[in-house]
Design a binder for these strands. Structure first.
Lengths: 343, 343
DNA sequence: GCCGATGTGGAAAGCGCTTTCCACACGCTA
DNA sequence: TAGCGTGTGGAAAGCGCTTTCCACATCGGC
């Protein structure tokens, strides 16, 4: 059933030229070929339905047209937005995106990079969120070094790794600004649904929020850790409810957690923002029409993906860092405190 | 800066064996190699940091480890959920996913398939939504034929193409069941935000809904076409509002459109479900905690991706069709009609 | 009219693997 | 002991390209 593929030799034969000439015509070469031969070759290729073998080209050229994209979970809107940006730029440049998912397993991250290296991928964008696990980080660093040594470029989104291109979202500054705005609304007692302890993104957001509160003279927030997911937010909010903290405002370190938390509060008979205010982080596009609107810190996710892809595609000598500042967006889910808070 | 890569010859030399033996040890071969040589080779490979060149393997074996995934827009939760399913299965099987996005351009779909074919991709999952454009469909069919002739497998999600594996979501039946439930609530006058005219998925959902209404003896719905996106839903809802149809229930053919529509209704001072009921389709995970909860037809999106991937990976002689039925989920966004409807 | 410069075509040597052959050494049976 | 199957190692022929050489024209300047 598998019929033989048309090769360049056959095209060359059909056109009555040498293999070299056919190759020069059909693929970008610096060498000139006379118009007559050129037309013959192009005609033969079309007539025979010639399709270059990408593996053979990659082997001969020692470089592929593949660009890796490593994310934790492509179904997560945070990552899928970034992926959209990366994909757009890569495809515009005629490259092919290889998608790898880690499920938040640092070991898997290394594995994927390994595979990508085996494929001689031209570049990789790692949109994972760095862990604080030293061993994993060091193996990742080794793999990245191997990748760049081999001539590939690596960029990270939000991982401030030494020596590679990075797009750094304003996690700390954004959370800090959010804290400022929320205290300006009159809140003094806060709770934070802080995500996993070993996730740098989550830690940064927590730290920034704390800093903002401290500046405003608000009390140290009550912190609950948990998963970085909807369910994590839901569980953390339930924990919060049993703790009876008196918080009038809840900050979830990302939007999907905020979503889960809102559900938990609602199940508990609490209204947002009348009984408690809530804010998230990211400004996930799908959630922009929520009612009440979710106050959050907007990150230009697609743009972050685009910028990471650009960093990794146009080649510049030294590693660069691009900042993607977050912008506080206050919507209806936060208001001035009125009730007694969570008791 | 780009240092030479360790090749199999070097490993063989280092281990003092032939190239053939090294290859047999390091890659699955049916041939036996004595334990002693095997250990020597493995040891040398590890010591030298050998990494097989995937392009060379693909060339020699005439088959790659790549699996294509073609979607319209990876940032769309519908597609990113499907992508998560496909990716999981592919990665479990040790394969590498190549992500291509079409931006709803049928021509781009063909292009991507072409590229995938050039890479000797082992299989492709097309999660696009079929258009009714005959010319585009025929070029796609040609490309698919070429792909399968070459030994690759192709599966589609929701495109009922002749001769290839397909996962068919219950668009028609789901919409029909939804219509049944909504009429049971007492609604008689409906409006449908129907998406693009040339999108088969959208047409099927509209047709199913119409059928359900007809069965229940409800009036023919007022139909507004538009984009399959949040903004499309928003615009269509605005159009609906100016039309003054008296509809008491709005069906948006997917959840993101429903989301946009809800925003438009809200902006117009209408309450859901008190003034008007609204329902969507898909049951996007991110929107499950909406308040009021969005009535919809749940599609097992990730599972659909998984099943498509399985279809395309385990090889069976004839094309198969797998059904993924939709399940009506009634939540708070729909209630019995109370007011006068949209005027 | 000679000489380098330039432009164009082809032969062939890889790129790094897989996989057929072939060779050889055993361990059997007859 | 001859003869044969079987298990294991190696030589070498590809896989389908790219790219270096080399050969040969042609052309302009003097």
């Amino acid at each position: 059933m598998t019929s033989r593929q048309v090769t360049l030799v056959e095209v060359a034969k059909h056109a009555g030229v040498s293999l070299a000439t056919a190759s020069r015509v059909l693929n970008g070469s610096t060498r000139q070929v006379s118009d007559e031969l050129r037309e013959r070759v192009v005609g033969s290729a079309r007539r025979l339905g010639y399709l270059p073998n990408a593996s053979a080209q990659a082997l001969a050229r020692n470089s592929s047209v593949l660009v890796g994209l490593v994310v934790h979970d492509i179904a997560d809107p945070y990552f899928s937005s970034i992926a959209a940006g990366v994909t757009r730029i890569a495809e515009e440049a005629g490259l092919v995106v290889v998608l790898g998912t880690t499920g938040r397993d640092p070991g898997r991250e290394v594995e994927l990079l390994h595979t990508l290296r085996a494929h001689r991928a031209r570049a990789v964008v790692i949109a994972g969120t760095r862990t604080t696990d030293r061993a994993a980080a060091s193996r990742l660093a080794d793999e990245i070094a191997a990748f760049t040594t081999q001539g590939g470029r690596v960029a990270a989104v939000s991982q401030a790794k030494l020596g590679i291109d990075t797009v750094v979202p304003g996690n700390r500054a954004g959370a800090r600004a959010l804290a400022t705005e929320l205290t300006a609304l009159g809140h003094r007692r806060f709770a934070v649904l802080a995500g996993p302890q070993d996730l740098v993104v989550a830690r940064d957001r927590l730290a920034g929020f704390r800093a903002g509160l401290a500046e405003a003279g608000a009390a140290e927030p009550f912190v609950v850790h948990g998963d970085f997911t909807r369910d994590g937010g839901h569980a953390a909010a339930r924990e919060l409810l049993t703790a009876g903290t008196g918080a009038t405002c809840v900050f979830a370190v990302n939007d999907v957690m905020a979503m889960g938390a809102m559900a938990a509060l609602r199940e508990h008979g609490l209204r947002v923002p009348e009984d408690v205010s809530i804010a998230g982080f990211d400004d996930i596009p799908t959630l922009r029409d929520l009612a009440p609107g979710l106050s959050t810190v907007r990150l230009p996710l697609e743009e972050m993906g685009e910028r990471a892809a650009r960093l990794v595609l146009d080649d510049h000598p030294t590693a660069r860092t691009v900042r993607a500042p977050g912008e506080v967006v206050l919507r209806a889910s936060t208001s001035s405190p009125s009730g007694t808070g969570l008791r």
